[in-house]
Amino acid sequence: MTEYTDKIKEIAKRVLTEGKVEMVIGFREGSVPMMNQPHYATSAESVDELVWDCNCGLNLANYITDKKGNIGIIAKGCDSRNIVTHVIENKIKRDQLYIIGVPCTGMIDHQKINAMFDQEILTVEESGDKITITGNGFSKTMSKQELLTENCAVCTHRNPIEYDELAGDLVEEQKDVDPYASVTKVESMSADEKWNYFEDLLSPCIRCYACRNACPLCYCPTCFVDESRPQWVGKSQDPTDVRTFHLLRAYHCAGRCTDCGACERVCPMGIKIREFTKKLNKDCLELYGWEAGLSLDERPPLDTFKTDDPDEFIK
């Protein structure tokens, strides 16, 4: 991954020096294994902090919402789709951005990897398609493919959709993956089983709202759970209120979600939050043939009306 990092630095230095952008948003190395931190460089000198590896799973489109000025941003496939969505939704203008596209081979799942070992992990190193995990008295090398986050493992848009320049050669897109396997599983359950499945899924939730806040789609000035006049939803740990939050948040992402996995990655309780959004993604694909963030010129299905929109549910 050092090639990517070097190329990113070279491009970032150039666009900053040329005055094309005022800042370049990327990642810097974190203080614990598998945790890179979103960061920005404003001068050619500060560019050296930027890195790129398999721990850049957060979605950087989250950091450009309503920003003024010209911005450089490093974007893997999903980030670029969220940038497209941002542009469509008027959260930023395309000509404010210099997009440094990064063809992506997937990000590793720090929660899964931490859970694999009883002891603390001290270093995680990436070399080609191998990951070496080392701790006190153990070291294990595994294939990166096995360690990918669930959304990366089923991703079919690894290459950036929209970019000004690439930091590496385009990669082959994954075929023969079923992004909706877990949705299909839930669909086959009875109503009670479904209810209990989601009850169990959400039981650890502490309502920290990390899922909402890491999501580039969640940019409302005041979220509905934070409204107090009227107060739409209770603030306690009551299961109905917790479920209301997750269900409504998912609806707000309908036709907009790119399955970047940021919500799941940031959850301190390890909740599989994508179980909600994935169902809506599947419906959007089946009903409207739509996947979010693939084109700057097409309006999303939920803000357009077409005479051939499916309407079997209306009696």
Binding site: F198, E199, K315
Partner: peptide
């Protein structure tokens, strides 16, 4: 679809 997916029985929500 989504409500039914999360365990609300079909038949509770109607559109007309």
């Amino acid at each position: 679809n989504m409500l039914e997916h999360t365990g609300i029985e079909p038949g509770r929500l109607h559109f007309s």
